[in-house]
Design a protein around this nucleic acid. Structure first.
Lengths: 199, 199
DNA sequence: ATGAGATCGAACCGATCGGTACGATCTGCG
DNA sequence: CGCAGATCGTACCGATCGGTTCGATCTCAT
């Protein structure tokens, strides 16, 4: 929300406020499910202000996806960092964090992946690819620290579990999806680290 | 395409033709990415005909999602049936079929799940839930025939892998996603069937 | 031959879309 | 004080949206 009527102390603040307020609206209603006019009305900002900051509705969408992707990744990385040294504990912490996310009443799947399912344009696809890369980096670190025989392959399997759990939790009414994914992840981790071929 | 100008031999044929022609258009462009006018023009049918058969754009979308869901499920079931008796072979066959699907140049993820990511209305959500139920039924059969200790839990883990592989294949440029999911699925199957608790 | 019904093509509807323009207002800086 | 610029509110733009209507055309069954 623009702090007052005229110039706020910091235009950058307005931009951030718009992003923060627009994110849940675009997430809940879908990128095409809410128009710019209603968006501005709910945010409490004029269209001119929004367009000066983001140029285009797509520009706003791209900016908000970027922020969202970074925030989620940071959140998962923090969960890993808080889980101690054991790679298995770190992996479990990721899926515990996912469960927490999935249980939020407003949960509707991953905003970034949902966006890619709607807009097939190149910008959104690139953001989504980077988003998955962030996840993959996190999981690769864990796989490497665990001493997996093929860390990259294991990390991709774990990424499939993370994304699969999110999709299933979003679209299928069943409880404990994240827990089942967690169990599967730990089995894959144990299998990939056991019996190193040359030992 | 309506076979001729006036009454076709069978109006049911027209309905099916509309569905078949509309499906790839809605899939490629997104449900909101193409309007009814252009849709009708590309299909080669008048708006009046489309609206008489489906009542609403949402009606068309629902009908096409239903058909699509059934077709994909049947296709996977056929792959299972062709894989012989061994549950592990049947499971592997599912992921081989997925890989084949993911490699199609027009692949953009699962149409049903994508639709749920766009339209949050109740109808689409119900279709998507049933879609996942179909997958789950297929996987539960395999888990039971394999003698898994907890077939339902294993089936859900496999469902997570199926959906996860599809999402990752759609949005992340990496090869062999289905193969990695397949390997993970076989590990989970082996783990779930080994060491029956009371033996 | 006639009538029922399916279809076309095009015109038409009100609503909404993304985006722009404008005059007024307010703030911070020099 | 006065200017630059950020913001508001509103009106406006052309385009497109989903959906309806109508007259003409064609097929089939009677």
């Amino acid at each position: 929300m623009p702090v007052t009527k005229g110039t706020t102390i910091d235009p950058e603040r307005t931009r951030a406020a718009i992003l923060q307020a627009a994110t849940p609206l675009l997430y809940q209603r879908g990128l095409d499910g809410i128009g710019v006019a209603e968006l501005c009305a709910r945010i409490g900002v004029s269209k001119e202000t929004l367009y000066r900051h983001f140029g285009t509705k797509d520009g706003l969408v791209a900016a908000m996806l970027e922020v969202r992707s970074q925030r989620v990744s940071d959140w998962l990385a923090a969960a890993v960092a808080a889980a101690g040294e054991d790679p298995a504990d770190q992996l479990a912490a990721i899926f515990d964090a996912l469960r927490q996310w999935h249980e939020e009443p407003t949960f509707r799947g991953c905003a970034v992946v949902n966006a890619a399912a709607q807009h097939h344009d190149q910008t959104v696809r690139a953001i989504t690819a980077r988003h998955l890369d962030r996840y993959l980096g996190l999981l690769t670190d864990i796989a490497e620290r665990a001493g997996a025989a093929a860390p990259a392959a294991l990390a991709r399997q774990l990424l499939i579990l993370v994304e699969g759990a999110t999709v299933v939790a979003a679209h299928h009414r069943t409880t404990g999806t994240a827990d089942q994914a967690r169990e599967a992840a730990l089995i894959l981790l144990a299998t990939a680290t056991a019996t190193p071929p040359g030992s």
